[in-house]
Each structure stands twice: as structure tokens, then as C-alpha cells.
Design a protein around this nucleic acid. Structure first.
Lengths: 338, 338
DNA sequence: ATGAAAGCGCTAACAC
DNA sequence: GTGTTAGCGCTTTCAT
């Protein structure tokens, strides 16, 4: 297009900004990165020059010189789940305005894929990584440790020196659901789980443990590794009622399953019987609101993303977040009245 | 961690690979990039050396030296819509194995946000851009043109020299829905639209035009700029039937709206009356399968992503795709029998 | 607090 | 076909 040497970008460089401001390159660099050790007056001149030239820093040069990029890698197990979409959006909302570039990696709930993503993206020298949970391959964990890149773990909690995590206790959430059902006099409980990632299993464990503490027999479990979906919820609901017709309380590991069950009941012309309580785990926005008599565990999606991003920023500033485990609670939304 | 000069990454460099293979740096570079002008024997030596050292190229250095990165920017209007998630996945499946890094930008159906994303990401010197549709600000279009980066447009078609696009005609899809309803004897048609992005309006236009061609009065329209959702579908369906109780055919611009309408009908204890035909535009996977008597327009999501990515690769190789507009058709899935 | 010099790791340009 | 040289644009290091 332009007749310039093919090596150059044609964009204004830091040298040009510095020249225009009458300072050295390095002073311009420091001023633009708002490093304290620069005279405020010079800094203003530099900023004016940069604005006049419409200067935009070259990220590649910056990364090459400093051996650290401004990109932050976020690894999530799925994009088909609104939980992660909303978390991602919240993360971007925090990081993008501060000049960070958010790289999204979806590993489809597969350890080998997560490992591969980590391997690839580490070559880009990200300045921070946000991870989902703790369930990953040893190789992946070792890659992360060796890279020495600040990490924040989302969605699960672990009290351990040097670990920064933001989320809530999946076990506690499961236990709370059990207590809710028991407090309503339900005694023949069931658990319906799909996907079976680490967090689903933790919710199941917390649920069963609370039931055991109450001195009751364990909940009947229907589990399938298939991905969770509305359709699957209907199928599993049918199967459950066929195998255990006197079930009176069901915990679906995700809201889309619970929604599918409700829909399936409606489709047959019968709403879910009064005597059955259904609890879902909040994932499906909008749709959840429509379902009558469905209790939901409300998780702080956006909040987790926002806090995770903020915690990472603290780490990048060299601060060690005082609370290594930021506990963001969930709450039970009882809709049975509707 | 390691006691190395803080400037260096500590990772093996091309120079080390070259030394080990007994060739010059540039030969190693050419060999690893599979540029033809290198002796096959030397190339093997270089590859062996690279493997032995576990060499991974430094993308920052590469980008700085060549003024072009290996990242490809994909701009989508939303992540809350499965259509775009699946398209993104397909794109990544094509590009990642070939060494490209996929950058995702979500502009929330906002022109100013898309413009901002383009401005930011262009500084990373992407080697290609995938865009959704043609409806963007003039500034954004100018930025793209000036950057001289190969672009491929998705989801809409435009026959124009130098424009590469992959998708289907939204107007034709709308027309096909109208013809379907008319062929079943429906005469009191309605259109229910939310979100109101360019493509929704194009579908509406095609629908109304086909109705006009048939010599019938225009379909009643219920339109809202709110984002499309299952819940909203129920609301709009109620509103439509209150205002026009004798409607006998409805085209919902998205499947989630159509699904919500069906659900709302079931919730009231009445399935959607036999005499009303409902057509949705395929967006909501899984859920759509559950709805009885719902016709759906099936769009080639994954296929569009895959073809768009491939077309971009052709452009990058200097090939001008012979067909400037790859026409990926949609089809009507009639489910009314179920 | 500011600057000069060197260098990050790679590829374009040009010679051979 | 291969190598030499220079340079991409920035930041670190070290001197002042």
C-alpha cells in the first residue's frame, strides 16, 4: 500500500514520540508506562506528543524487550455453558480497560487439551493465567509452575499457602441443597448429574455427606458423562421416575437438566408433582425464570470473574492478596411459591 | 527462578538450533517455516535439532521482525448465542492446528465497541480478520481497509469484487419461511423479532417480501431491541395472541424465542393450538429438539466457521478464492409430525 | 531523575 | 540454495 520499507510497520514509533517531546526514548517509555521516576512536566510533554502522533505501542516489541506480554490467558472447560461465558465477560470487563489482552482457551473438559493449550500459550509469555478449578494433569501443573507466571484459580476453593483462588465451596453448596430438601420434609432424595467434571462430583459429595449426617440412606444417583443439556434433563428425569417412582426430592447438578425435567413434565401434561422438590444448579439464564416451583442455587458468576481478574492484577503488582481464598458465596433461590 | 540475565527468556533460541544443526540462523529459520528454498537434508538436520532442544519459536520476535503476527482476529456480536460459539469452535479447529492463534472479540452488537476492538487488535498486527456481516461503522471499515489485512465476512452474502464472504442469504431464509407457512394454508402471519441486528431485519424483509409477492397483506410484526431469550419468547407470544388472536402462522427470528413461546403455551396447560404454525430460526441446541410441532430453519453454523477459516487461509496464501461469495445454504427442518 | 548503549529473537534484504 | 548483515521497536542495564 504505502511505499515504505517492508520491515517497518509505518506506524509512529516511540522514538518519534520522544523526538517530538524533546526527550530521550527511555524517558518517553517511562512516561507512557507511568513509571514514577519521571518529571511530571516531561511526562505531560510526552503524553501530548503521543496523542498528537496517535502513537500506539507495538506489543510485539514490548514483549520481546521485556520477555513478558500484556496478555492474560483464561482457561475454561467449556463455552457452551453460560456460567463460563459470563465469567469471561466479567474478566474482560476488568482487564481490557487496563490495557490487557484476554486470550481465551476452551479445553472441552479434557485434560490433554488443557495441557496443549497451556503449552502453546506459554510461548506467548502471558503475564498471568486464570484457571478453572484444580483438576488438571501433573504435566500441566508442572508447566505452570516452571513458567513462574502468576495464576488465579476460579470456581473452587483450596486453603494453601501461595494459592490464590476465587470461588465457593462446591461441597458446601451441595450440602445446602440437601439441608433445604430435608428441611421441607423430603426423605427419598436423588442426585442427577451429567458432565461429571470435578465440580459436579464435589457438589454430589457435599449433598451425600449432608444426607449421611442426617442419618438418612444415601440419595439415589443417576450419573452420565454426557454433556449437560435441557434435553438430557428430560430423559434422566423420566429414567429416575421409572426406577424410583417414590422419589420426593431431586438435585440436578445443573439448571439446564432441572429445566429439561420441568419441561418434560409439562409436556406430558403434568407439572412436576407437588410432592417432588426439584433443585437445579444455576446455569441457564432466562429459561430458569420461567419454571414454576424450581429452586435454584444461585452462583456469583460475574462476581467470580471480576474478583479473579482483580486478584490477578494484585499479584501482578507484587501484592500478595491477604486472603488466599476469596470465598464468594452462593445462595439458594427458592421459587416454589411461583 | 533461574539465574539468567533478566532480558532473556531462558528458552532455546533459533541461534542454538542453527548451531546444533551446523547451519546459519536464517537457514534454520527457513527450514522451520518450511520455505521451499532449503536443502531437504539440511532441513531434516534443523528439525532434529529443534526437536532435541524442544525449541519453540518466540512469537513476539517473529512478529517484530516480520511486522505480521500469526494471530487471527474473529469478531462476533455476542457470545450468549450458541450460533457464534459453535462458529468460533469451528474456526479454532481449522486455525489452531496450523499454528495460528485465534483472538476472540465480542462487541455485544455495538458498533462503537466493534470499532474499539478493531482499533486495539490491529496494533497486534493480526494476519487476518473474520468479521460478522457488513453492518459496521464507517470508521471501522476504513480502519480495516487501511490496515490491508485480509478479511472474510461471515453470515451474510454480498456479491462484490474483492469481497470474500461465507454464509447464506438471510433474505432467502426469511422468504423460505413465508413460503412454507403459505404452502400450509396459513394466511394470518406474524413476525416476532428481538435483538434486531442486521440479520434479523434481513430475515424479516425476505419474509415480508415473499408474503407481498403472494399478494397477501403484510405480516403483523412484534419487534423489540431486547436481547433474544427463552423468557422473552413467552412474553412476546402472549402479547401477540392478545393483540392478534387469530394469527395462524408465526416466524420467530430466533429459536430461543420460539422455544419460549412453546414453553409458555405448555405452561398454561395448552400446547400451541394445532392451527398455529411456529417457525424458529435455529439457535438453541438441545432445547429445540424437545419442542413438538416446531419448524426450524437449520443454519450451517460449524460449516460457516470452517469455510470462513479456510477461505482466510487461501487469502493468506495469496490465492484469491474463485468464488467470492461461498453460498452455504440453510434448510427448513419440519418437526410438526413429532 | 535522565540518558546512552545494548540487546531481546527473529526475519527481510541482499549478496554470493 | 545459503549466508551475512542489519534492523524490527521497545526495555533493561548501567552510568551520570
Amino acid at each position: 500500500m504505502k511505499d515504505r520499507p517492508s520491515r517497518a510497520t509505518g506506524r509512529p514509533t516511540l522514538a518519534q514520540v520522544a523526538a517530538r517531546a524533546g526527550v530521550s526514548q527511555i524517558t518517553a517509555s517511562r512516561a507512557l508506562r507511568s513509571i514514577a521516576t519521571v518529571d511530571p512536566q516531561l511526562a505531560t510533554r510526552v503524553h501530548d506528543a503521543a496523542k498528537a502522533l496517535a502513537y500506539v505501542p507495538n506489543p510485539a516489541a514490548r514483549t520481546l524487550a521485556s520477555a513478558r506480554s500484556h496478555s492474560i490467558l483464561v482457561l475454561v472447560p467449556a463455552l457452551s455453558n453460560h456460567l463460563f461465558i459470563e465469567t469471561l465477560e466479567a474478566i474482560q470487563d476488568v482487564l481490557r480497560p487496563r490495557g490487557f489482552e484476554v486470550l481465551i482457551g476452551n479445553y472441552h473438559y479434557r485434560q490433554d487439551e488443557e495441557e496443549e493449550l497451556i503449552r502453546n500459550y506459554l510461548s506467548h509469555q502471558p503475564c498471568g493465567i486464570l484457571l478453572t478449578g484444580f483438576n488438571r494433569s501433573e504435566t500441566a501443573a508442572r508447566l505452570l509452575a516452571n513458567a513462574g507466571v502468576p495464576c488465579v484459580y476460579m470456581m473452587e476453593l483450596r486453603q494453601e499457602e501461595g494459592i490464590v483462588c476465587v470461588g465457593f465451596s462446591q461441597e458446601a453448596a451441595g450440602a445446602k441443597v440437601a439441608e433445604h430438601l430435608l428441611s421441607r420434609g423430603r426423605r427419598k432424595l436423588a442426585f442427577v448429574g451429567a458432565q461429571l467434571d470435578a465440580r459436579v462430583l464435589q457438589r454430589r459429595d457435599g449433598y451425600q455427606q449432608a444426607i449421611a449426617r442426617a442419618g438418612l440412606p444415601p440419595a439415589f444417583e443417576i450419573m452420565t458423562p454426557e454433556p449437560s443439556s435441557v434435553e438430557l434433563g428430560g430423559d434422566l428425569f423420566n429414567r429416575l421416575l421409572k426406577e424410583h417412582p417414590n422419589t420426593d426430592g431431586i438435585f440436578f447438578c445443573n439448571d439446564d437438566l432441572a429445566f429439561g425435567a420441568s419441561f418434560e413434565a409439562l409436556r406430558k401434561g403434568v407439572a412436576i408433582p407437588e410432592q417432588i422438590s426439584v433443585v437445579g444448579f444455576n446455569d441457564l439464564p432466562g429459561a430458569g425464570q420461567m419454571v414454576p416451583r424450581l429452586t435454584s442455587v444461585r452462583t456469583p458468576r460475574a462476581t467470580i470473574g471480576q474478583h479473579a481478574a482483580s486478584s490477578l492484577l494484585s499479584l501482578l503488582c507484587g501484592e500478595t492478596p491477604e486472603v488466599t481464598a476469596l470465598d464468594l458465596g452462593f445462595k439458594l433461590m427458592v421459587r416454589e411459591s411461583s
